[in-house]
Simulated scan of single mutants.
Amino acid sequence: MERSKIITWKDPMEGAKEALQLSGLEYLQAMSEGKLPLPPLLYTLDFTVTEMKEGEVVFEFTPQEFHYNPIGTVHGGVISAILDSATGCSLHSLLPAGKGYTTLELKVNFLKAVTIKTGSLKTISKVINLGGRTALVEAQLVDEHQTIYAHAVSTCLILKF
Rank of each mutant, 00 (worst) to 15 (best):
L83F: 04
L95K: 11
G76L: 06
L130N: 07
K99E: 15
G119L: 02
S80Y: 04
P70R: 02
H75E: 10
G119T: 06
K107Y: 01
S125N: 02
T115R: 06
L95T: 12
A97G: 09
G88H: 10
I128S: 08
A86P: 10
L91V: 06
F59M: 08
K122W: 08
I116P: 09
T103A: 00
T62R: 13
V108M: 02
G132K: 15
A81L: 01
V142F: 12
G98H: 02
A97P: 15
H67N: 05
D143T: 05
L83A: 03
A86M: 04
L130H: 10
K126S: 05
A81P: 07
V108Y: 00
A97W: 11
S80N: 08
A135H: 05
A97Q: 12
Y101M: 09
V78L: 08
T147G: 03
V74K: 00
L104N: 13
E138I: 10
L91R: 07
K112L: 14
T87V: 12
A113I: 11
T102V: 15
V78T: 14
A135L: 06
I124K: 14
N109K: 15
S80P: 04
T147L: 09
S85Q: 06
Y101T: 09
H67Q: 02
L121Y: 01
I128A: 03
T147V: 13
H75A: 11
